[in-house]
Design a protein around this nucleic acid. Structure first.
Length: 154
DNA sequence: GCCAACGTTGGC
DNA sequence: GCCAACGTTGGC
């Protein structure tokens, strides 16, 4: 049973094009407990992910990715040279978790936030909720299908 | 366990 | 650059 998710990345930090070039990546740097718990407990290999570009004009979904490795310790938390260093993280208690994802398909045309807000078929989508800030979040399957359709994918 | 202060996210 | 919304920290 495939589940659907959405992950946010700022394009000047790690864009979709970089994921395509890298072929897969580990999703390090998440330092929010709710997002961590989702990666640790809920995201399974084969689940599909909407790759969202935040903090850009306009914010948009760039493509679809797939979980290719389930939750494991985010080693950057134990690296004092990393921006994501957390002094409370240890080998015994890594505190932060990441998954690996790989690209599946780019949108034929990007799906912008205003277009999603204007589409009543997406009413109730967590991304569109007021004050939504979670960088890893669930996507209802019917919303996932609608976003793919909006992006021009079969 | 409360809550004020502070830091971050992210659309606009 | 602004600021609303939200999460975390730490004193009490």
């Amino acid at each position: 049973m495939v589940a659907y998710w959405l992950m946010k990345s700022e394009p000047h930090v790690y864009p979709w094009e970089q994921l395509v070039e890298d072929e897969h990546t580990h999703w390090d740097g998440v330092r929010n407990y709710q997002a961590r718990n989702t990666m640790r407990d809920d995201m399974k290999e084969g689940d599909l992910v909407l790759f969202y570009h935040s903090n850009t004009k306009p914010p948009h979904i760039a493509g679809v990715a797939r979980v290719c490795r389930e939750g494991y310790p985010d080693h950057t938390a134990q690296d004092s040279n990393s921006n994501y260093f957390d002094s409370k993280a240890t080998a015994e208690n890594p505190r932060w978790i990441m998954v690996d994802i790989e690209p599946v398909e780019a949108m034929d045309n990007i799906v912008t936030l205003p277009d999603m807000k204007a589409n009543s078929a997406l009413d109730g989508m967590p991304l569109l909720a007021k004050g939504s800030r979670l960088s890893v979040q669930s996507v209802p399957s019917e919303h996932f299908a609608e976003v793919r359709r909006m992006g021009g994918l079969q």
